[in-house]
């Protein structure tokens, strides 16, 4: 490898890799440019253009973003708590208990990997209406809680736990729930972290189902709020839309930049299993 490091071919390759990276990050860089400059500079890339926070102020005052932030925060917290609860129990059942119908149930559960809640918007809307949960945060979150993906991940993690650990805990008098909480959950901590990161970023970004099931400011998450705000007919200018867009992605983006390694690792862990 050392010799080829200096070859022309290698140089071209590095150039191409960088160019692709620039191309991939360009939309985001551009959003930064537009958001922090007066709207006169939206397409005028003058390096000496004055910087401003005015666009953020305008965006913040144009739409109830504070409420949207709260809604999204409540939503991702609720979904994550629900997923941890339902997937832990079901994952434990599939990993450690023999019961009639287990394999069939597991296969049915995995079907949900393909038939996602997004696809079932029509009938799920009727069910939510029947439950009186239209336009509630719970209504947005419920279809995602018993996630096949989470059940599968935790089942795999729990299967790796040596039986001796469980036996030791039983000798000390733990019941089957005690064993789950004292032995299995702690061992699977990295999987919880990985799954948690993937889940939070998925639901922070989710759009279609929240759009269908919400219809008021009190429940709308950020993505739906942003879509309404940025609609061309709203007549808001580019600089302000860019500012709003950056506000929406900021928490996730900052978290990603700070914990890049964990993010990448999490998506890897979640994918390999």
């Amino acid at each position: 490898m050392t010799r080829s490091n200096f070859s022309l071919g290698r140089l071209l390759e590095v150039g191409a890799a960088w160019l692709l990276a620039l191309l991939w990050i360009a939309p985001l860089l551009y959003a930064f440019w537009a958001a922090f400059h007066p709207s006169a500079y939206v397409t005028n890339f003058d390096l000496l253009a004055p910087l401003t926070l005015e666009n953020f102020k305008v965006a913040w005052s144009f739409a109830p973003f504070d409420r949207y932030f709260l809604n999204t925060f409540l939503l991702v917290t609720l979904v994550l708590a629900g997923q941890f609860f339902f997937c832990t129990l079901a994952g434990y059942a599939f990993a450690r208990f023999e019961f009639p119908g287990r394999d069939l149930l597991f296969a049915l559960t995995l079907l949900q990997l393909f038939i996602l809640p997004e696809v079932l918007i029509v009938e799920n809307y009727r069910i939510m209406a029947g439950l009186g949960l239209i336009d509630t945060i719970a209504g947005i979150g419920l279809p995602y809680m018993a996630s096949a993906f989470g059940i599968f991940l935790l089942r795999q993690a729990f299967k790796q736990v040596p039986r001796e650990l469980e036996d030791a805990a039983r000798v000390e008098g733990c019941g089957f729930l005690g064993v789950l909480l004292r032995v299995y959950v702690p061992v699977a901590k990295p999987v919880y972290l990985a799954y948690g990161l993937v889940s939070v970023s998925t639901h922070w970004n989710n759009f279609l189902w929240p759009l269908v099931v919400t219809n008021s400011v009190d429940t709308r998450p950020l993505t739906v709020g942003l879509a309404i705000f940025g609609a061309p007919e709203s007549g808001v200018n580019w600089a302000v839309i860019s500012a709003a867009t950056l506000m929406v992605i900021a928490p996730l983006l900052i978290a990603f930049l700070l914990f890049q390694r964990q993010f990448v690792q999490s998506f890897m862990t979640a994918g390999i299993k």
Binding site: F86, A90, Y92, E98, Q112, V122, E123, I127, A146
Partner: peptide
């Protein structure tokens, strides 16, 4: 083990039935 297995799966099973199986059939 049958009892515990079913009990542990039941909460997720109810959710899956409500929001995945039923809407698919429906």
């Amino acid at each position: 083990s049958t009892l515990y297995g079913w009990l542990l799966f039941a909460p997720a099973g109810v959710m899956l039935t409500l929001f995945a199986f039923t809407p698919t059939v429906a």
